[in-house]
Design a protein around this nucleic acid. Structure first.
Lengths: 284, 284
DNA sequence: TATTCTGTTCCAGACGATAGAACGGAGTTT
DNA sequence: AAACTCCGTTCTATCGTCTGGAACAGAATA
């Protein structure tokens, strides 16, 4: 019963794959499960789940609550997750730029990276100090057809990748009445984003939330992430739009530069390359 | 070649244990390694490492850089780590209290939880807005004999647990000239902390950094975490000490209450219980 | 008391993982 | 240029670990 791994071949250790599958199960609320429940969620044998849970608990990745006989993810994963972000040169390169951007604008600033072919993850942020604010969560995962950075990341993907996305997400989930759910309309929006060089979210992911984002290029010229300034719709007028557009584009360029990006051509067309993804296909 | 798992029994899946072991290897700098290097670090066969890496990469927990032929932790772990913290009732219960505490004091506020028998992990924080500030990192792991919250957590452990800690960490690492490295002196300090009900770090973990912390009890009356207010030594005079002591104790009590703690006796002595830890023993 | 969920234990046999050596390519040294 | 050394990768026969299914026990429900 070998896993249907997309890229890899015969060097795949089933037991380990199942362990990761089990860990992923904890991503869905209420993030706290018992043996049978996990068995049903994952399709694994109750026995298998039991032994996997025992093993992962012994290794410190899971907590076990003997009262409710349930398991939860442990803080050891918080540690691993922190290293995963912090170890990334992206977060390091972006930190001072994010600081400055947050201070200058007074709004929430997010750094969101491509996670795999079909999603992106927020890997750093600076929260606005204002009372009414948009606050993203580090570690939050996004689909790519709504939200300023997600659309941006999709826009700068290879055409085939975009089509694969459309095929995979079909039908495109509607988050708000403003979400673009028509493939044709989305393609047009993506083209416009490439043209402009920045991306705007006008309550298409969450009602009342707006954002403006610009692309971050790595030293290959591949778009690996985006910075965004996010704010309530009430503060996103024409004036802010113009001001923040410039600020966010400048900030993204600065981060790109720190990553070793050297824009040889002013046109970013050469950068529209397929980001290297070898992760197994996974939803959400 | 079964793993020497402390508590568990025969329901241990070796391959999974090795996978976790491999993940943990990435915690040490530079957080980026090749096959042979990891093989040496973990003592696993080069072949084993190779297949584990392939599997974990296929599952999306690792990134592979084909240029340098090295692997790093992926953002999927950031996601898992975020859920591990956020899903915790502790972080949820503490959030508004941390907000208020940070706002009232203007200093950095940390929430640090016991991770296993020998260490604690920072699971949430609010950074001070001041220019000169102490800033902890979510996911950072601490030993228990230095720092306000760490000492606090150790102080409220069962006596046997304290002795196990002393035996395990021997000799106690000296972080600064103010670090308590003598076991007897540490026992005295811990007794004083229990007596006072709060804990102080006077540059014993990092020169120039001071903090004051109070214990958080869960609904069993077990100390599972601590809140601290951290600031530069230059801002930690007698006046602040008195003011923050009250603030942090009140905040911790409030969080405890939200966790279902009902202090039947005013004396916390009944709370000095062994926290339930079944994780495998691991250093750092 | 009977029922139906749990989580846990047991076991024999299949088949997947293991170790170790060999391969080929890149980078260094002679 | 040739020899050397390191790396990641591939291969294979053998062994032993993990697997699945069914049975057990305890708690909660009816």
């Amino acid at each position: 019963m070998s896993q249907t791994s997309a890229v890899p071949a015969r060097y795949y250790i089933d037991a380990v794959g199942r362990a990761v599958q089990l860990l992923r199960a904890f991503l869905s609320p209420p993030h706290r499960f018992g043996v049978t429940e996990l068995s049903q969620m994952t399709g694994l044998t109750k026995n298998q789940v039991f032994r996997l849970l025992r093993t992962l608990t012994a290794e410190g990745l899971l907590n076990w609550d003997p009262e409710t006989k349930t398991y939860t993810l442990s803080y050891a994963l918080t540690e691993l997750g922190a290293v995963a972000s912090r170890g990334s040169s992206l977060v390091q390169a972006a930190a001072p730029v994010l600081d400055r951007l947050a201070q200058e604008t007074g709004e929430t600033v997010n750094l969101i990276a491509r996670a795999d072919e079909f999603s992106a993850i927020c890997i750093d942020k600076r929260d606005s100090a204002r009372l009414l604010q948009i606050t993203a969560k580090i570690g939050a995962r996004f689909q790519l057809h709504a939200g300023a950075v997600p659309k941006l990341l999709l826009a700068f993907s290879a055409p085939e990748s975009i089509e694969r996305y459309l095929a995979h997400r079909q039908p495109l989930q509607r988050f708000t009445p403003h979400t673009i759910t028509d493939p044709g309309a989305l393609r047009a929006e993506l083209a416009a984003i490439r043209e402009r060089g920045y991306s705007v979210s006008d309550e298409d992911l969450d009602l009342g939330a707006c954002a403006i984002a610009a692309p971050i290029f790595d030293h290959h010229g591949v778009v690996v992430a985006g910075v965004s300034i996010a704010m309530p719709a009430s503060r996103f007028g024409e004036a802010e739009r113009a001001r923040y557009r410039e600020a966010v584009v400048t900030a993204a360029a600065e981060i790109s530069r720190r990553l070793g990006h050297r824009p040889d051509t002013l046109n970013g067309a050469a950068s529209v390359t397929q980001p290297m993804i070898i992760s197994r296909v996974q939803d959400r």
